[in-house]
Nucleic acid binder design. Structure first.
Length: 201
DNA sequence: AGTGCGATTGACT
DNA sequence: GTCAATCGCACTA
């Protein structure tokens, strides 16, 4: 299958700050390896869940569920929401500090047929537009919770494959707590970004 | 032990 | 635009 070489990001390259990391990840590549096949996409939308953020899962302290948010930056935190969907986050601070970046949308790059099969649709725009859809497209599930995204394995982060456009920001989507905070980042004008037109200006 | 509700999505009026 | 789906977590008692 498509064997285009993608340089894996080193942990030392990841900013040690949740908001900085959320911005940094726009345009980077997410690589999913599964059964000898590979799916990749450009990260085009993220949200930061920062230190002391009441909307973040780490806010009430370390538990079995949110454990990975307290790991060194660059680990996958996968959780289940609404009894229906999985969401993929990247831990984002130093060990012992709980915070993360939610990956909200990808621009599909390689392995598109496989993503289409996983999603049960051929509509390219809809494959990974939104955090739940992203997880379905790449078959992200709790077995990937805790995976080191800076190491070879089933899921990792790669350098950008294409130039990155202007980065926009807005309030985060779907929150009641801390709803005013401007912690969502996205590539402007990219049709694979979720959210309303208002939020994407 | 019981309860309320969520970092969403897809189907439907 | 509205709404149900469906489960585990965290909080109350």
């Amino acid at each position: 299958m498509p064997g285009r070489r993608i340089r894996r990001l080193r942990r030392s390259e990841l900013p040690i700050d949740t908001t900085e990391l959320a911005r940094y990840l726009i345009g980077k590549t997410l690589v999913r390896e599964l059964d000898g096949a590979r799916m990749t996409g450009r990260i085009v939308e993220t949200e930061a869940y920062v230190i002391g953020d009441a909307a973040g899962h780490a806010f009430r302290g370390r538990t079995q569920r949110n454990e990975v948010l307290f790991w060194e930056r660059g680990h996958a935190y996968v959780y289940f929401i609404y009894g229906v969907h999985y969401m993929l986050n990247v831990s984002s601070e130093t060990p012992g500090i709980g915070a993360g970046v939610l990956l909200r949308a990808l621009e599909p790059f390689e392995g598109i047929e496989l993503m289409q099969r996983n999603r049960g649709t051929t509509a390219l725009r809809e494959l990974a537009r939104g955090p739940g859809r992203l997880a379905y497209a790449l078959r992200v599930d709790p077995s990937l919770n805790g995976v080191d995204l800076c190491a070879a394995g089933p899921l990792w982060l790669g350098a950008e494959m294409h130039p990155v456009g202007r980065i926009g920001k807005s309030t985060r989507i779907g929150l009641t707590l801390e709803a005013h905070r401007v912690l969502r980042f996205y590539e402007r004008g990219n049709v694979f970004v979720s959210g309303s037109k208002r939020l994407n200006q």
